[in-house]
């Protein structure tokens, strides 16, 4: 493999300074970066390990904003009783991801930045605009069952693979980003970038910037929330389709709704049309399915992934009904 320099950061400041150099990569849990480096997919020449830095794994849940330190481990967060009770969608999205061993090591911040599982990106051989800009997109006439229905372009049709990110999109979430210039927060919806003209660019993160926290606005909708993941294999598989739904209810009537989609888009994908279809309605199976169909009204299918329009709608419907049934 490519020779690279490895250093353990002694402070966040040092890490931010080193990360500002070209071909630097930040490593937290290492579960995804090492894979990418083995596949020669990063071009990283300097790996800056921040996994052990103190203070960045703290989770604070008692204020008006839930604050998740970027280095908190997926497995640890998935076990927090308060979160299980009040934000089941977030917990479920963590529990249904990867394997227990990976969740033990992987961090919440790193999870957001995992890269697509598109086989043509990963194989290191096929033309791929994400890996070699300008080389083309093999998936356009290749195996496209896993590819995106939303946020794709004729340059890239890969999907964002994460579960946690999809669940976060169903809440009022922000990302705290730190750099030598200071700390800023950006809306989660603006953090990832749909694969349009520049598929190699997947988030707004710039060299020298490090995700330090994930901030979720506290909401009563958390209690009536769920994350439904549909996959070929029962465990340890990426979503074919997934949906997170969070509801505020007055009896059986929906007063507020957030719906997001996974496995079908180039970034965590919010579905406002589905939300609109739910709000004001007495929620039943027919209404839920109608909302699911609304979520996929603008979907653009390729040759072999058209079934995800139907399956995705059903996934939203299931999630809506499960969310309603919580507590």
């Amino acid at each position: 493999m490519r020779p690279f320099l490895y250093s353990r950061a002694t402070s966040l400041e040092q890490a931010m300074s080193e990360a500002a150099q070209s071909h630097a990569a930040i490593m937290a849990g290492g579960t995804t970066l090492v894979d990418l480096m083995r596949g020669d997919l990063t071009g990283a020449e300097h790996v800056i390990d921040i996994g052990h830095l103190p203070g960045l794994a703290k989770v604070e849940l008692d204020g008006p904003v839930l604050r998740f330190g970027a280095l908190a481990r997926m497995a640890d967060v998935a076990e927090l009783p308060f979160l299980k009770q009040n934000y089941p969608a977030l917990v479920e999205s963590l529990q249904l991801a990867a394997s227990q061993q990976i969740r033990n090591a992987a961090t919440l911040g790193g999870n957001l930045l995992q890269r697509t599982r598109c086989v043509y990106f990963r194989d290191g051989v096929s033309d791929c605009n994400k890996r070699v800009p300008g080389s083309g997109c093999t998936a356009l006439d290749g195996e496209d069952r896993e590819m995106a229905l939303f946020g794709a372009s004729d340059r890239c049709v890969a999907t964002y693979p994460g579960d946690w990110g999809t669940a976060l999109a169903a809440f009022d979430t922000s990302i705290e980003i730190s750099s030598a210039a200071g700390t800023k927060t950006v809306k989660f919806a603006d953090f990832h970038v749909a694969y349009g003209d520049d598929p190699a660019r997947e988030s707004i993160l710039q060299p020298g910037e490090i995700v330090t926290a994930i901030l979720v606005q506290a909401t009563p909708a958390g209690r009536h929330s769920t994350y439904v993941k549909v996959r070929d294999r029962q465990s340890y598989a990426y979503a074919v389709t997934s949906a997170a739904v969070a509801l505020e209810l007055d009896g059986d009537r929906v007063t507020a709704a957030r719906v997001s989609l996974g496995g079908v888009a180039s970034k965590p994908w919010r579905a406002p049309a589905a939300e609109a279809a739910l709000v004001g309605q007495v929620l039943n199976q027919a209404v839920a399915l109608e909302a699911g169909r609304a979520a996929f009204a603008d979907a653009k299918a390729l040759r072999h992934n058209g079934f995800k329009i139907d399956l995705g709608a059903r996934t939203v419907a299931r999630a809506a009904m499960v969310a309603k049934g919580k507590h």
Binding site: V119, Y120, R122, D123, E143, E146, R233, Q234, S235, Y236
Partner: peptide, 13 residues
Amino acid sequence: ANTDLASYHFAAN
């Protein structure tokens, strides 16, 4: 096309 164990699925427990 699917030459890794993330995309070549076999049964998990």
